[in-house]
């Protein structure tokens, strides 16, 4: 197809820091370091839980002049000093994932991958991010079409037709 109107929603940022790679990694891996720099300017950061390991999570609160926001990182894969993969999302005070506090539409969960490499004392950080498809269960229901759905596409086509008629009122 010639004209591609849709592309994956994704983001890549490359930044260089005048610091050794281990120090940059530590800024994400250590609670004390993280608390020193994370969070938008003017917001007060409270780290409620910090558990930097695969399967662990970090939960924090931001207070921007009385506007409260909670967010969660769920670490998926960590390679010491080289790579951090985590999911980020907004939460309620208890840490349950919620939609964003902003009026605009925002993905429920975002996959973030930070990779680090060092040359001559300069660390290059690459961030890759994309929204997570929040419903693998739903995807599954139609990728492994079960036998009852496979009794001929006519049946399913008919269901779609009924559905289309319904949603169009």
């Amino acid at each position: 197809m010639e004209n591609k109107v849709t592309q994956k929603a994704e983001l890549r940022i490359v930044r260089q820091f005048k610091a050794p790679q281990s120090l940059v990694f530590n800024a994400f891996a250590s609670k004390e370091a993280f608390a020193e720099w994370w969070g938008p300017k003017g917001s007060e950061l409270t780290v409620l839980r910090f558990d930097f390991r695969e399967g662990g999570s970090t939960h924090y609160k931001l207070d921007n002049r009385g506007m409260l926001m909670w967010a969660l990182f769920r670490y998926q894969k960590i390679r010491e000093s080289d790579s951090i993969e985590f999911l980020s999302s907004f939460t309620d005070p208890e840490g349950n994932i919620t939609s964003s506090p902003f009026p605009m539409d925002f993905p429920l969960e975002i996959y973030n991958h930070i990779t680090l490499s060092e040359t001559n004392g300069i660390t290059t950080l690459t961030l890759y991010a994309e929204p997570v498809n929040a419903t693998p269960a739903q995807e599954k229901t139609f990728t492994d079409l079960n036998p009852s759905m496979n009794q001929g596409y006519e049946g399913t086509w008919g269901q779609l037709d009924t559905y289309l008629a319904k949603v169009q009122g």
């Binding site: 820091f17 005048k18 120090l23 020193e36 969070g39 938008p40 300017k41 975002i110 961030l127």
Partner: peptide, 27 residues
């Protein structure tokens, strides 16, 4: 989608500015 990508880019760029300051400070 475009709005989200831009907003998220801005978010991370702000974080990285702050990280840069932090790294300079501790070094």
């Amino acid at each position: 989608v475009a709005a989200w990508v831009e907003q998220y880019r801005e978010f991370w760029n702000t974080q990285f500015d702050s990280l840069d300051n932090y790294l300079n400070r501790i070094q």
